[in-house]
Design a protein around this nucleic acid. Structure first.
Length: 594
RNA sequence: GGCGCUAUCGUCUAGGGGUUAGGACGUGAGAUUCUCAAUCUUAAAACCCGGGUUCGAUUCCCGGUAGCGCUACCA
């Protein structure tokens, strides 16, 4: 199926790409007299087996990032750089998030990223996150970045990567920069070393837990492995040097004992002011024992390196944000803005998941059933976001014009599918609306692949003729196959001859009279709407019938079913020969009724 | 268990100290029509519970409850 081009100007055209600035780690050479460049003990073996490309370590820059000029918050907890001002708060909600005018620097265009992990098909929740990021970038003339978060070698697959790109391409939304985390391992490991060198991370030689062991967390002993956190540097180095494997953990500040609790806080673009005591955050892993970075580390290191300005992601990351704040701080980087999106959940309330809900959550299911990308996007946007003006049906351009984080809701949204119907009725309705709003030629080209797939001999001319007849009758493009089958079939599918009998008191004899008379009249009629209209109404008058009883037998004879597009247009497309033929066949069928 | 987030018709949502609580999908009824569809009209349908604050809370505050998320060397 051809990828429908949405013909949107790329964000790049609107906002030329600024030169990519280099990483902004403070230059902090390892000073602890650690043994060599891999004083962390990241073993060669692991690096090799991972096939880490010899990507050059990122160029360093001592030039402060321009955005640092925006830093204004005090170092109480983590400081959230913000050029937003908070005027009032209602229900804890930030009411005014208008951009604060800044006299010293011009506001930078936002840089946002969508960072899927290629562990399955693209699912609707991810698609929505992508769309919201795209919309935000588009609305603010910023840059959209696609980054494959593929640090979990165990679970990543090429199939998944392809599937994600398929889905994204189908949506027709473009991005300006593209990265792959696995290409950036050097950066991540540099970040890990950085953190370790600063004493913000420690080696944990405890063997990895089996996943379902949450005994310790139930006891509240989950915060850290006491023995490991306090291990002396010498001891730690010695064990690492001896080849003992370890994970690297963040040394989260513990203040409860000393009575100086560190409060981590940030202002979420959707959920407003957030804060949490650092003592509630566990010593999370930065590096696995195979030397691979965890999601938290890789993601933050990359976000910092790529100068991401706004992280817009699922609400499932809301509490992870505190960890990320710690990492950004440890790296000496300014944290981006965060905005979390309410989750998409199934009717049973559970987060939409590939495992539990199957293909109904896959973007390709929507595509293959005949959703228009614009309709799909429209539907997804309405889940957790509102333009607040009673608008429902919206073209993409309008959504982009209207989209703001203020319009994002905070409660999870249910995608209302059932076992019988994988699609939310509203999605289907929106699709029908979008179908009807499409110019006929455009719709014809959208439908064509479905006809081809069904094996119909569909010429462009024929499709063009049929499209206007079915466009108000289909809600999904795929339905065109069933709605227009009789235009293509040589032989009509068998139907019950009783259907030829006119409704409301008609009988077989009446049906026979109608069809026979039609057979006499039709050869002399020009097959276009007006001529057929005139001829058949006259025929009805001749037989002393109303239009209904006259048209119905002909409709069934010609289409093979009771419900079909308007008669005259249909007959025009079918042509005289086919119509006469089918009417003759119908008369024969009638004989069987006696 | 701990921590966090959330709570308006069946679903998506608007609203907000005094409203007939608005819209949309879906559902029911009717109109129109050559059938179906589309279209139009119309009906039923909601502020989780309990306390405060207030002349007045669905709205603000607190508590409860419920749901969800995080609590992995997953992302």
């Amino acid at each position: 199926m051809p990828v429908p081009a949405l013909a949107l100007p790329s964000i790049r055209e609107i906002c030329p790409l600024p030169p990519i600035r280099s990483r902004i780690y403070p230059v902090s050479p390892p000073t602890l007299g650690a043994p060599g460049p891999s004083h962390l003990g990241i073993r060669e073996r692991s690096t090799h087996s991972l096939g880490a490309p010899p990507s050059p370590s990122p160029p360093r820059s001592s030039v402060p990032h321009p955005r640092r000029a925006f830093v204004f918050a005090a170092r109480v907890g983590y400081t959230h750089r913000s050029h937003f001002k908070i005027l009032t708060s209602q229900r804890g909600k930030i009411v005014d998030r208008a951009t604060m005018p800044d006299s010293t620097s011009t506001p930078l265009a936002p840089r946002v990223r969508f960072a899927p992990s290629p562990t399955g098909f693209l699912h609707v929740g991810s698609a929505r996150t992508f769309i919201f990021n795209w919309l935000f970038a588009r609305h603010n003339h910023g840059t959209m970045i696609l980054r494959l978060d593929d640090t979990d070698v165990e679970r990543n697959t090429d199939v998944s990567v392809r599937s994600i790109f398929d889905g994204l391409h189908w949506l027709g939304l473009n991005w300006d920069e593209e990265y792959k985390q696995s290409d950036r391992l050097a950066l991540h490991q540099q970040a890990a070393q950085d953190l370790f060198a600063k004493g913000l991370a420690y080696r944990d030689f405890t063997p990895a837990h089996s996943g379902d062991d949450n005994q310790s967390s139930a006891q509240g002993a989950w915060l850290f492995n006491p023995g490991m956190r306090e291990l002396s540097r010498e001891e730690s180095d010695r064990r690492a040097a001896s080849g003992e494997s370890f994970a690297l953990r963040y040394r989260v500040p513990r203040g409860l004992k000393s009575g100086v609790a560190r409060i981590l806080s940030f202002v979420d673009g959707v959920y407003g002011a957030q804060s949490k005591a650092a003592d509630e955050v566990e010593d999370f892993a930065l590096l696995r024992s195979d030397g691979m970075p965890t999601y938290h580390l890789a993601s933050c290191a990359d976000d910092a390196a790529l100068n991401i300005s706004h992280i817009i992601r699922g609400q499932d990351h809301l509490t992870n944000t505190y960890k990320h704040l710690l990492i950004f701080e440890g790296l000496g980087a300014t944290a981006p803005h965060f905005a979390h999106l309410p989750l998409l959940v199934a009717p049973d309330g559970a987060k939409l998941s590939k495992r539990k809900h199957g293909p109904v959550v896959s973007v390709t299911t929507y595509r293959d059933s005949g959703f228009l990308p614009a309709a799909f996007i429209n539907f997804l946007c309405l889940l957790g976001w509102s333009p607040k003006n009673d608008l429902e049906f919206m073209p993409l351009e309008q959504i982009a014009a209207l989209f703001t984080l203020e319009g994002v809701n905070r409660a999870n949204a249910v995608v209302n599918f059932t076992d019988a119907d994988p699609f939310d009725p509203k999605a289907v309705w929106l699709n029908a609306e979008h179908i009807r709003s499409l110019p006929v030629e455009k719709l014809a080209s959208e439908i064509a692949p479905f006809f081809a797939e069904a094996g119909y001999n569909a010429t462009p001319e024929k499709i063009a003729a049929i499209t206007p007849l079915i466009r108000e009758r289909i809600k999904l493009l795929r339905e065109a196959i069933g709605a227009a089958d009789f235009f293509f079939l040589e032989e009509l599918a068998p139907y019950d001859p009783a259907e030829l009998i006119p409704p409301k008191g008609g009988d077989a004899a009446m049906a026979r009279r109608v069809l026979s008379h039609a057979l006499e009249v039709l050869p002399a009629v020009t097959f276009d709407h007006d001529s057929l209209d005139k001829a058949l109404r006259e025929a009805a008058a001749t037989l002393g019938l109303k239009a209904g009883p006259m048209f119905q037998p002909i409709r069934v004879a010609v289409c093979g079913r009771k419900n079909a597009p308007p008669l005259f247009e249909t007959m025009t497309v079918l042509g005289r020969d086919v119509c006469l033929n089918r009417i003759r066949q119908a008369i024969e069928k009638l004989e069987s009724l006696g």
